[in-house]
């Protein structure tokens, strides 16, 4: 059965993010609580995702390298999008990602009072309650690796070619890994040629645990409802949407299960593709599309 390989430091996997940084990414995104550019929403979602991944893989002795991560921007140029100490690096072990954010912003987390049910014993009352509250209300530092950028065209084909090279090289060294996942976030059509053939090349790469996964998300400024994880292309509005659909892998069963937990009912054959995504569907796309099992 595919997509069941255990992920460990001895057998890590990788995520490759492709981020459209073309000029149109400076347009506002639909569905945001406060007005926001598409580039801002994506930067926030990617930084939030990386931060959460580091927290989940953190142990007393540091962040464990269950994952290696690449963030590739494509706009005026195609290349690694990390800033600061990681600038110029393509695929980076998660421990190094954690060690070198571009900057840390200090924020106060949600107060513990709002997270505690009335009448709960133990930490909710007495000295231990105060202690827990003191711990939970300590300011936390929020990392930023990736800044919003919106300039230039949409060289999606070159970005996919970059991802293909990274993943092929990775598989040569890690042939038994959980299949790498490539997530492409864009708001427009490719300006450097048809991306479908290279997308197909990516999907033909395999580890012993199954084919590489390629998922696509299309951002929109309009208010029409997102089409999330469709199983068929006839429901899609135009050729561009159908093209991205055809470039997207089917979601493995465990990702569909994760989607069900989030209240989505996905049909058999649902693709890792969201069309007309708003701000919240970017976060959901990353959540579902990076879901893995058996992290050890």
């Amino acid at each position: 059965m595919s997509y069941t390989a255990e992920i460990s430091r001895a057998n890590p996997t990788c995520f490759v993010f492709l981020i459209d940084q073309s000029l149109s990414m400076s347009d506002p995104i639909g569905g945001a609580a406060v007005p926001m550019r598409k580039a801002d929403a994506v930067a926030e979602a990617i930084n939030g995702f990386l931060s959460e991944l580091c927290v989940k893989c953190a142990k007393e002795d540091g962040v464990r390298d269950y994952f290696h991560v690449a963030v590739i921007g494509y706009g005026a140029e195609v290349g690694p999008a990390f800033r600061g100490g990681l600038a110029g690096r393509w695929l980076v072990p998660l421990s190094e990602v954690a060690a070198a954010p571009y900057r840390l912003e200090e924020r106060v987390p949600v107060p513990v009072a709002t997270m505690t049910a009335p009448g709960a014993t133990g930490l909710a009352g007495g000295l231990s309650g105060q202690v827990a509250q003191a711990i939970a209300e300590r300011p936390v530092r929020v990392p930023v690796w990736f800044e919003p950028t919106a300039f230039g065209d949409t060289p999606m084909r070159a970005a996919l070619a970059g991802a293909h090279a990274i993943v092929r090289e990775w598989l040569a060294v890690h042939p038994g890994c959980f299949p790498p996942i490539v997530l492409n976030i864009t708001d427009g059509e490719s300006t450097d040629g048809d991306p479908a053939p290279i997308a197909s090349d990516i999907q033909e790469l395999v580890s012993a645990d199954g084919p590489v996964l390629l998922f696509n998300l299309h951002l929109s400024e309009d208010r029409s409802d997102p089409i999330a994880f469709p199983p068929e292309q006839f429901r899609l509005p135009d050729d561009f949407a159908r093209k991205l659909f055809s470039m997207s892998s089917r979601l493995p069963e465990h990702m569909r299960a994760m989607a069900r937990q989030q209240g989505l009912t996905l049909e058999q054959g649902a693709r890792g593709f969201v069309f007309n995504a708003d701000a919240s569907s970017v976060v959901q796309f990353l959540d579902i599309g990076t879901q893995v099992l058996n992290v050890r």
């Binding site: 927290v55 953190a58 300590r138 936390v140 530092r141």
Partner: peptide, 10 residues
């Protein structure tokens, strides 16, 4: 304590 531990501890 590193930034990635703060949230885990909380």
């Amino acid at each position: 304590i590193q930034w990635f531990e703060e949230r885990g501890l909380a």
